[in-house]
Nucleic acid binder design. Structure first.
Length: 294
DNA sequence: GTCCAGGAGCCAT
DNA sequence: ATGGCTCATGGA
């Protein structure tokens, strides 16, 4: 190895997070975030404009990122390694369906993502499969994201594009990223966010319902996508996104035998799953997706 | 070909 | 309030 590449390789910094029960694969592949690529047992992605490689260990996660780093708080927060999963599970109601879902995805966690990336990604999510959302997000990043530092010899990586950058895109440029009818939604919302109305940095200090109604003023953001952002970016753990999978699961296992409107499903969810309902939702979602039904 | 995907917005009841 | 229709795109 020559001196140059050696110097660059040493720019990778490493750390470990001690964690009780952390299912990295289930967490990073459960449809919360769309930028992680599996490489063997490891995962590579970009968090907060930094390239990251993660791999699971025994009661720990190994992490790599590029120097210089003042600290690892940004990654610990994203991964929510300080969250006590036992406390979360203890808050769940005793019901057999949820219990099985928890067993099927031991160690699944909720991430705490950057608000704009989460919002923009879920605007793209409507009537798309997760693999296709990943493709759209990947195209946006490659074309409009700022390049980030990567290890020597590593393929180029890009940050998630800022709202300001996407606000300058034409609808045609966004459609060229395969966004389809979501292109005008993303463009219009990017312009709102770039203009500072609403200010995503202050939403977290509002009450859940208040923050939700602000998000729902954005083009392309209805109840479901608002709840995804509230849960995955702001940590409102009562938020309970109901997509087609979750709706199917709730009707089948909790409200069977008759035709049930979405409003009734919401009333059931609010009373049944408790203060960490959103966490329960993620277990149910993962369980439904990883299972074959007759 | 047909069906469906981590929906939203619009319009007619 | 509630129920249908349309909006692109790609994979099974």
């Amino acid at each position: 190895m020559n001196g140059l590449s050696s110097a660059l390789v040493t720019n990778v910094e490493r750390t470990e997070f001690r964690v009780r029960s952390y299912n990295l694969a289930a967490t990073l592949e459960s449809g919360q975030a769309f930028r992680w690529r599996a490489l063997g047992g490891a995962y590579e992605g970009v968090v907060g404009g930094r390239w990251v490689r993660l791999s699971p260990g025994v009661d720990k996660l190994h992490a790599e990122a590029m120097a210089p780093l003042a600290d690892w708080d940004w990654l610990a927060g994203y991964l929510q390694v300080g969250e006590c999963l036992e406390t979360v599970l203890a808050s769940f109601p005793r019901d057999a369906v949820l219990a099985e879902a928890v067993l099927r995805a031991r160690g699944l966690r909720l991430l705490r993502q950057e608000a704009w990336e989460c919002l923009a990604s879920f605007i793209l999510s409507s009537t798309k499969r997760i693999v296709q959302i990943r493709q759209m997000v990947g195209l946006l990043c490659a074309r409009y994201g700022a390049p980030v530092a990567v290890p020597c010899g590593h393929a180029a990586e890009f940050a998630f594009p800022t709202a300001e950058r996407l606000a300058r895109c034409s609808e045609a440029e966004l459609r060229a990223c395969r966004l389809g009818f979501r292109a005008p939604y993303l463009r219009a919302t990017a312009r709102r966010i770039a203009g500072g109305d609403p200010d995503l940095a202050t939403l977290g200090s509002l009450e859940l319902e208040q923050a939700r109604s602000v998000l729902m003023t954005l083009p392309g953001v209805g109840r479901k996508i608002a709840d995804c952002v509230l849960l995955f970016a702001y940590g409102f753990q009562r938020a309970f996104p109901i997509d087609v999978w979750i709706g199917k699961a709730l009707r089948r296992f909790y409200l069977p035998g008759r035709r049930v409107a979405l409003a009734e499903i919401r009333r059931f969810v609010d009373t049944h799953f408790g203060p960490r309902a959103g966490y329960a939702q993620q277990y149910l979602f993962h369980s439904m997706r990883s299972r074959v039904f007759p």
